[in-house]
Each structure stands twice: as C-alpha cells, then as structure tokens.
Design a protein around this nucleic acid. Structure first.
Lengths: 370, 370
DNA sequence: TTGTATGCGTTATCAG
DNA sequence: CTGATAACGCATACAA
C-alpha cells in the first residue's frame, strides 16, 4: 500500500503536489511534474486511504442504511423478498453515486445510533422506523436523513419520507374485494402503527363506502415473527370459515397463509379469497398467482438515495413527503361471489380435509435458526 | 460529538488517561480519575471515531463482502432469495462478532479491489468467484480471505472455501430422476464453471451409473440474466417435448421455468418433471412444491465468518475446503414414469394450449429496470 | 509552480 | 499512576 508521502519522497517533491495531481488540480502544477506523478500513481496502483480522508475532511462517503428488525434476534429479515429487492436497489444507486453503503439491522435503536455516529456517515436512510425511533435518532445524529415507509408526525424538521399511497392501495384492494361480493373480510397485519395502520385506515374507508363497519373479530394482528409459528397458522386455519376473504398487509404473509391453507385442503380462491401487498417475486410465482398491490421498490430505493444526496449537497427540504403511486394487480387469488352466497361464504369449507403438510419447512422458516 | 481530547481538557488530564479508562486499562489509573472520566463518558455519550482508530491501528473492523454479479448492470442480484438469505446470515454473524459489513456488488474485479484496499478491510468474503478473479484479488489484497461457493484450484496459498457437496447433490438428484424412470433429462445451468460445472459432473456420474451418456442437446446453458428473457423461455417451451424432466442448477430457474410452462398448459409433474437446487423460500412456496437439493445457507454464512475471524486472529489455514452436506428434498414436482412410457415422455404435451400469460411481470423481472 | 505546517481523533511508546 | 509526544494518511491554508 503506497501512500502519498511515499511517492513524494521518491520524486523529491512535496505531498501537496502529489495530492494536487491526484485531484486534478493540474492547473497549479507543471506539466512535467504531473507526468512524473501520474507515472508513479499508475506503477504502484495508488489507492487512497479512506479513513485518513474521512478524518481530515470530516466526511466518510458512507451512506448508512438502518433497518429496524422487530423480529426475533435470529430471524433473517431478508427472507422477505421485499427487503432483498430494496437493499439491492439501494446498493446499486449508492454505488453509482460514488458512495459506500453500510447496513445495520437491529432492534436496538441505541446500537444503530452508536454505529452511525462511530462511522460518521454522511447520510442515513431509515427503513420502516416509527415516530419515536426517528426522534431518538435525530436527537443525536444531525446529518441528512431520509425515511422509507415511515409515518412520523409532521412537527419534525427536515422530514423527508419516501413512501407509498398506502391508504389508497388498501382502499382500492378492499373495494375490489367488496365489488367481488365479499363482506366478511379479515384484515391481517403485524402491527397497528405506521404503514400497516395507514393501510388499515384505507381498509376502513372502503368498508364505509359500502356502509359497512369493521368488526373486531375481523382484525387480526400477529406481532412480527409470530405469524410463521405453527400455532398461529393453526389458529387462523380454524377461524377461516368465518371469512370469505383475507386481506394481508404483505405478499409474504399472504403467500404463507395461502400455502398453509391449500395444503390443508382449502381451495383458493374457491373456498377463500386472499390478497397481498407489494407485488414481490413470490406473489408472481405462486399459484394461484396473487392479487395484490403493486409498488415500485426499485424506484423507492433510487428516490431515497437521490433525495439524500441532494440534502448532503446542501439542498434544504424542510418537509417533503413523497408518495409513490400504487396499482392493483388482479391475478387469480380472488373469486367473485354472488351476494346471496356471501352469507355462508366458505360454507363448503366444512369439507376441508386435513392433509399431510408437504410444506413443513415453509411454515417454520424463521424458527429454524432459533 | 465529543472527543477524547475535549474530555481530557475538561478534566485537566491527558488524553492517554481518558483512553486508558475507555479501554478498561483501569489498573493503571486511580479510582478517582476513573470515576471522573466515566461520569463524563456517560454524560456526553461518548462514541469513538472509527476512522481515527483505523488510522492509528491499521485495522478497520470491516469485513468486506464482494459479490460478482455477472448479470446486466441494472439487474438486481438480490431478486434471487438465495442471495438475500446469504447476505442476511453474513450480516447477522459479522455484527454479532463486533465487526461491520460492507457490501460490494460489481462485475468489475478492479473496482472490487479498489474498494477493499481503500477501506483497508480486515477480511474479505468472496461469493461465487472464479479462479482467475480470486488470483487477481489475492495479488493485491493480502489480508485474510474466505471464499463461498468457489472452485479455485489447489495451488493457491491460504485457500479457504466454504462450499457444498455440489457433485454429490447433483448426483443424488439425477439418480432420483433416473430411479423415477426418467431418461431424457435436460440439464440447465447458466455457466460451465465452478459450482455449476461441478454439478454437471455429478449429473454425468449418475447417468454413467445407468449406462447413459450425456447428449449434447440435453445440455442447456443460458448466460446469467438471459434465461428470464421471453425469447429464451419460448425457446425452452418449444423444446420441452424432447424431455421428460428438467434438472435446474438453482431453484430460481426451476421456479421460473415451472411457472412459464404451467401458464402455457404444461402440467407439472404429469407432463414434465422438474427439479431445483438450494431449497430456498420459493421452492417451498410454489405449487407443486419443488423437489430440490437442500443446503443450509445460514450455516454457510456463519462458517465463512467464523473461519475468517480465526484467520484474522492469526490462525493459518494453508488449505481448507469445507463442503457442507446436502440432502434431497422430495416434494411434488417429479412424477414416476413407467419405463415403457419413457420413450414418448411428454407425448401428450401435443395437447398443450397456448394460454394467456397470467404472469407477465415474472418473466421480465430483470429487464424492468434496464 | 512548489513546499511547509497544521489538524483531523485515536492509540502507543516511553519517560516522569 | 500520569502525561507529553509521535504516528497513522490525507487535505488545505498559507508561504515562498
């Protein structure tokens, strides 16, 4: 590892000159010197030491990406293809802009804060944070920050969020279910804050349009990492006859349920309709293909990086709330039911046969490692 | 951001003493001073500056993870859940060990080298590199390096690879297909080097056991990123009647093909059997569930980090080649055919109906961004 | 056109 | 027990 100092000594010139050549401040340097330096640069394949540069410039060229994983410690967050896609998009864009990406996944906000400060990252992207988390981080970390999929309240300064028309998406897909004749619809989420809560509001609005109220027994909340448990799935299975449709807050859950139910003889969509949210790889690959809400994850990632860099370069957004459009993707997981059927919905689900589970691993995915 | 110097000044003591307290070298410091320093540490929530530490220690606490993506520039590598799982496992383990992870995905080896050197990473994990790439990297980067899923030749020093019983896996699953009566088996891979080539060898060995030879038309190679193209899929579709089974080198491809074929009326496994490799999320979620080769991705990641840290701590492995065991997972994507049927295999595939593609996005996933 | 000097935050050596 | 000082590699203000 050759350094600027080494080369300066070799050529009998000062480090300043070498540095100037490296940074193309060639107007200040004689042509001869430039050539001599460049020859060495090339010969020894000089690579700058970022730590040193960070220290002297007080800028690290790192973009931190922090994901709060509310799951168990050992669960693998990236099992959900949504996160895989998002991380991939972020990485590509960050690199394309000449920055470096450092990921932190933790359920401990102080750990995230420590990491971000210790690396002196130039900017921070927070995924799926709740209001309080954001406040805590901002109280210690002063550099530009962009949120993805967060719903922090408006009082905060420098609030930039790249989100989705969540309310609209939930509204539209609920309306679709209603239009298809469904009346007893279960709403499944893993929390009642942020994104999921907003989707819940959209769900309510659609119901209201049809003069319906949300019944308590239709609201199914399973904390993150618990839906995958056999006990939860079994519970849902026993309650399935109460509904004609499940509306899930992610494709991940929808696909999980769909397979669990199908493996036990419930026909989708004949006995039960089901919808997802995200339009990720699995929703397209599963059969029957999942009716869901499309979002452009790649664009989400790219926009987040774009805004962040603008902020790093000095642009001030005192408040900015991007909501990417959604789109309903109708595939094959929802059936139309005539209104007179609606009353007894999955009535024929009494025929359900307890079948061997050919998908054992699938249901316990996240428990494997624990 | 308070620094050691700041605190030293406040207390009227030297930075050395503060540093000693921070690192628990408390035997050298009086009890009083320790307390005074700790109070400040706490009050100002001191966080060390890693750049400075890197510089003075010549050790960055960073583990680099480099993925060579041979796909198009804009393709998202993490679409394949295998990589998502692997990255998740690596991240968790690296963090648990008190290190930081920095990811580079690039098809340009020099770029990877530059990044690794510029950050002075303490250790490097290379995923899916070929022999030449490894040599190039090692010629410039001298710190510990662990390979994942590589097949570099044995002459190299400090060669540590965490791999799989690839040959065995391919052998077993091919034998299974043969046992089920299949004789006209297509072998689908995206290259003929490294992992895929080893799997090919296993495939050949199984065929030989049955006194069969590999026919040229049974070897299907599609370069990375090209299988997803409509044209490739269509080509495969037209050739499908020549085979009774497809053996794919990844679940990703298997699932891709399976859905494309099914959407066009080919019944799986009745008309065509299909197998994968990895046992990732999709293989479990798809229907018919995919018969495949199981590997423990989480363990792969954990082992890689484990070995790397041992090397960083000074253990010398002059050569080490871990091959994790595989296991055939029999699900529903392969049917048994009587030997007399084998001759005309997918004969009834002449009934195939060209159906609307309900899975439009799926096939062009990677082209969306291009 | 080139060089000198200084600072960034931390750790380590060695002397008091 | 404590402190002064140098060193890590780079960039920059200021001199020459």
């Amino acid at each position: 590892m050759i350094t600027i100092k080494d080369m300066a000594e070799m050529l009998g010139i000062s480090t300043t000159t070498v540095s100037n050549v490296i940074h193309g401040k060639t107007s200040e340097v004689s042509q001869k010197t430039v050539e001599r330096v460049e020859k060495l640069l090339d010969k020894y394949e000089y690579v700058p030491n970022i730590s040193a540069r960070s220290l002297s410039q007080n800028s690290s060229k790192i973009i931190g990406v922090a994901l709060k994983c509310r799951k168990d410690k050992y669960a693998n967050l990236f099992s959900d293809p949504f996160f895989g896609e998002l991380i991939g998009a972020l990485e590509a864009e960050i690199r394309a802009q000449g920055y470096f990406m450092m990921i932190y996944t933790s359920n401990d906000i102080s750990e995230i804060i420590r990491n971000v400060l210790t690396w002196n990252v130039d900017g921070l992207i927070l995924v799926g944070m709740l209001h309080d988390d954001f406040i805590r981080i901002k109280s210690r970390y002063k550099n530009p920050t962009v949120l993805i999929d967060s719903y922090a309240s408006r009082e905060i300064m420098n609030y930039v969020n790249i989100g989705l028309e969540d309310e609209e998406g939930a509204y539209e897909i609920t309306r679709y279910l209603l239009k298809m004749g469904h009346r007893r619809i279960a709403f499944l989420a893993d929390n009642m804050e942020g994104v999921d809560y907003t989707r819940y509001l959209g769900h309510l609005r659609a119901l209201a349009d049809y003069g319906l109220e949300m019944k308590e027994e239709n609201l199914l909340i399973f904390h993150p990492g618990t839906v995958e448990r056999e006990s939860s799935l079994r519970e849902l299975y026993y309650r399935v006859k109460n509904y004609t449709a499940f509306m899930c807050c992610s494709d991940y859950y929808a696909v999980l349920l769909m397979n669990y139910f199908m493996d036990r003889g419930i026909r989708i969509p004949e006995d039960l309709s089901i919808t997802g949210f995200d339009n990720n790889l699995m929703s397209r690959v599963v059969r029957p293909a999942l009716t869901t809400v499309r979002q452009d994850v790649t664009k989400k990632g790219r926009l987040a990086v774009e805004y962040l860099l603008k902020m790093i370069q000095g642009t001030e957004f005192s408040e900015w709330d991007v909501k990417l459009p959604i789109e309903i993707v109708i595939r094959d997981s929802v059936r139309e039911i005539r209104q007179e059927d609606a009353g007894d919905g999955a009535a024929d689900s009494k025929d359900v046969v307890e079948k061997a589970d050919v998908c054992g691993n699938c249901c316990n995915m996240d428990e494997k490692e624990a």
